[in-house]
Design a protein around this nucleic acid. Structure first.
Lengths: 110, 110
DNA sequence: GCAATGCGTAAGCCTAGGCTAACGTGTCTC
DNA sequence: GAGACACGTTAGCCTAGGCTTACGCATTGC
């Protein structure tokens, strides 16, 4: 039952990123969410379980459906975690970059 | 040589997060970086390769050392990617959350 | 030249974790 | 009750990817 680690890692996974975005527009049932993806419904259920563990999402039972929605407090904490990572030094670098010409020849490794 | 996917996933990995933070304070050699971690130097080299692929980091050769440093433009792009993820809806939810009582009983799954 | 240093790279191991198929469980309808 | 839904859960597969060990390759000092 390990289930990923921190909220940041939980939210970084591409499928879960999209899930969060979809849920941000309003509550959705598992089936509604699943049809937006190519993977099966159980896979979505499992992703939702990870997001629930991370406190980013919650479910409300209604009959035989379960409406998932985002937990605002969890999102706030995630935001804080990102901001903490994005501490002063990185911000200074960004400021520095935007001051220069924005488009510059990029250099990647061979 | 698959090497992760997007910059966001590259930066999400805990060790690489720390590497970025360390490099944000200034250029470092591989050995300098490696002694901050419990893993071996080659492991750090590999993480640096991933970050280089993602355009977040670059290396300057000097004798037999290699000084790694952050690529400001890459960091800016990463920031943009995060901001794009953190689109309007999620922001509204956060605003909503901060308006309510900040500390609330959290509810996780069993 | 030769050894030591600083690094990248290759081979291979091993676990995390994303996926599917199958099944179990509650709920609604008839 | 019986069937159909909507979902969670489990078992197991399979790949991504993080790790170490071993090695190769420049560079420097002697």
């Amino acid at each position: 039952m390990s289930r990923v680690a921190d909220a940041l890692s939980a939210a970084a996974e591409p499928t879960r990123r999209r899930l969060l975005q979809l849920l941000a527009t309003g509550p959705r049932t598992v089936s509604e969410l699943a049809e937006q993806f190519t993977v099966t419904r159980p896979a979505i259920s499992q992703h939702l379980a990870v997001l629930t563990d991370a406190g980013l999402v919650t479910a409300r039972k209604d009959g035989r459906q379960r409406f998932y929605s985002v937990v605002p407090a969890g999102i706030t904490q995630l935001r804080a975690e990102i901001d903490r990572f994005w501490s002063t030094e990185l911000d200074l670098l960004v400021d520095d970059a935007t001051k220069r010409a924005t488009t510059q020849p990029e250099e990647h490794r061979s």
